[in-house]
Amino acid sequence: MTHAADLPAWAALPTAFFLLLGSGLTLLGAIGLLRFGSFYERVHAPTLGTTWGAGGILIASMICFTVLQSRPALHEILIAAFVIVTTPVSLMLLARAALYRDRTENNGGVPAFEAESEGTDGEASPKSSDQKQTKGQ
């Protein structure tokens, strides 16, 4: 915590701003994850944290380390690139898995492929052993 005093004001203010922006967006995304009603709405929530949420904190980290070590610290670009590439992949796989499960269990609200029906709520009838059921095949 001692190094924070070394940071000049022109660098400290943007760092603080981006930190608060990033963490605030991440928090809003997580609140959305908790509040939204159905799974397909909840899929949208974590992207808030992984786009500009992660971006803000990574920019803050870049500013801080670049000024402190007085050479460009570009490590953060690696994490940013990695997060940008991986998040869509995992969310897409999850959405497809959820669609597959809802279709095989015939839950309402999920479009059979060509159907134009709009459903918002893919909430399941409470099936407690949904993991074991697939495992036991």
Binding site: L7, A12, G24, L27, A30, L34
Partner: peptide
């Protein structure tokens, strides 16, 4: 002055992220 701002913003950001983790 700038150090206090930075320390406070880091603390607030960490609290936000902890709350986000709690939501998750």
């Amino acid at each position: 002055m700038s150090a206090t701002i930075l320390i406070w913003s880091i603390t607030v950001a960490q609290l936000f992220l902890l709350a986000a983790m709690a939501c998750a």
